[in-house]
Design a protein around this nucleic acid. Structure first.
Lengths: 342, 342
DNA sequence: TTGTATGCGTTATCAA
DNA sequence: TTGATAACGCATACAA
């Protein structure tokens, strides 16, 4: 069908192996024949066949990207577009291709992963989420397949998996301390999904800060956002606010959730930051567009993706490296926090 | 290295070709040997090699997805996450894989496309944007490579390319007429990038509505959002508003831009919708979270992706179909428009 | 410096 | 119903 290495060989009057060597620019081929072969290649419009190459090389130069299941709405979060931007950028400079998981449920995603590794379609995997009790990480570990996690693995895998993460514990502790410093005593916590590691870290940071200030953690002030990003959190927030005395400040796991909170508080007739202070996480583009603009923690999502990909490529190339990389965060003070009068 | 069809054959004491037939569940193999072979497969942990298959089948069962260049920020728009969700969903049910472009500039993206088609890595392409004077569509057409466009092709390719789109002309005309009906006479237009087809359609719809009401188009009321989604549009908007008499209503190409507009108007001390009415497009999740929630046009982004993928798969399977599919839009009235007193 | 031959893991054609 | 064998397009060990 399409033009192969043999056609080029014939045209250039050399052996196929010679053509192959010209393609890889082997030094053991004379300049003369190189030019001759290259001429034949362009004249015939030759392009190497990817599958034939991968088959013989046992390497694909493509990376698998595993997204969380999309119906839950997680994918709607700009977080993922932004990591993907970082991944894409690094993959591009190192000439790696990207293969995307398409599974719609946890089971399907697990199947995707199995398919990818068993069919030898990809050289490594970049995992965009980490949940408790997930089967993917144990599987990858068992298969000794190169992969990098964006996020932190559960404790039992701590030593074995390579990952990029923020210090979410410290970040959450810091923002809580900030609210404490502003004079807030009743601080609520709105976390992400309960089975995600990042939620655990956030909560521990939050609790740690309170304990250091000798404020006991009020369970009524803790809520989680279990399904998607919107509906559920609204209900929980109403419950939270109904509990008197209600908090004067909120630590919110995600800018998008913060936006949702902003909207609900507005409906309740509460003003931010006058009646309620809010700190959230991520610093997605949108967080500077809200009214008022969000005080948030920039976790450098793009870097998370970029560095994660770099780590993965290093693994594939058998380069020695630390198994953990912590991306620093940065506190972005905007207009959702205010000193609380005691 | 890994277990192949030959290993299975040996273990089951049959020929490799028999194993192959068992894999494809050929009817000409006895139930007995099928079971024998399948047993051997699971015992050895056999999994077919993707590249070997693709090589001999001349088919890859994977689709290439071409994103716009990301540095421009276009990728940050939830629009793309949402089409991707639709694409992913359809690809998943039909067991197609997804291969992502990684190019960071128009040139790199063009190279990506060339690579993908020449290296025979994918069976078809789904193009997520359409610009004037882009080289990609002519290239794909020349190569007779199956592809589907999300959006509308430039007029000269109208007959030849398969695409899914909204009737953006009609939608823009409709929202403008709506503003007219509310009594607005001075209506501004904030479009997307000038070289995108959708921007042209929006603007033509907007102008058509004005002309039908015998209102002449004021060039000073027209601005475009050329770089990314934020900074640039803010400046242009300031210019627009500085021009007296300033508009009382705005047609904005995109919810994200509308959010940006909302923020700027707020800084200027103008209230929405009391001092300014706004209609935008897309109905991304966020548009119901803004203050006030956006009156917008739901263009059914997810369907755009889903149906686009369906069309592409049909093409690959040589199924007859219309070359154009128009996804209906729906006007979502929320709280950014108000009757204008004359 | 170049050519010959073989293998990568499948599928498919042709015999048996 | 099954087996032997030739492709698919390329890379490389070994010869020359």
């Amino acid at each position: 069908m399409s033009v192969t290495i043999k056609d080029v060989a014939k045209k250039a009057k050399v052996a196929p192996s010679t053509v192959s060597r010209v393609i890889s620019d082997s030094p053991r081929i004379s300049q003369q024949t190189k030019e001759k072969v290259r001429l034949a290649m362009t004249e015939l419009g030759y392009h190497p066949n990817y599958h034939a190459r991968s088959l013989v090389n046992q390497s694909t130069r493509t990376l698998g990207v595993i997204m969380p299941s999309s119906p839950k709405g997680a994918f709607q979060n700009p977080f993922f577009s932004e990591v993907l931007r970082g991944i894409t950028a690094k993959a591009s400079v190192d000439k790696f291709g990207l293969y995307l998981s398409t599974g719609q449920s946890d089971d399907e995603i697990y199947d995707d992963v199995q398919q990818m590794v068993f069919s030898r379609r990809i050289d490594g995997i970049i995992l965009l989420y980490s949940k408790m009790n997930d089967r993917i990480i144990p599987f990858l570990l068992k298969e000794k397949f190169p992969f990098v996690l964006v996020g932190r693995p559960a404790d039992q895998f701590h030593e074995q998996v390579y990952y990029v993460n923020n210090d979410n514990f410290k970040a959450a502790k810091m923002v809580t301390e900030y609210l404490l410093l502003l004079g807030h005593k009743r601080i609520g916590f709105i976390g992400g999904e309960l089975d995600q590691i990042v939620t655990v870290d956030h909560q521990r940071g939050y609790e740690s800060a309170l304990e250091h200030s000798d404020i006991s953690v009020n369970k009524k002030y803790l809520i989680y956002n279990n399904e998607g990003v919107l509906e559920d959190s609204q209900e929980s927030l109403i419950e939270l606010m109904a509990h008197k005395p209600s908090p004067t400040a909120l630590v919110v796991a995600d800018d998008l959730m913060a936006l949702s909170v902003l909207r609900l508080l507005n409906e309740m007739g509460l003003r931010v930051p006058e009646d309620m202070s809010i700190v959230s996480f991520n610093n997605i583009m949108l967080s500077q567009l809200t009214l008022p603009p969000l005080t948030t923690v920039d976790i450098h999502i793009y870097e998370l993706g970029f560095i994660g990909t770099e780590k993965l490529i290093n693994m594939i190339n058998q380069k020695e490296q630390e198994n953990e990389t912590i991306i620093p965060y940065r506190f972005i003070k905007r207009q959702t926090c205010k000193k609380q009068n005691i």
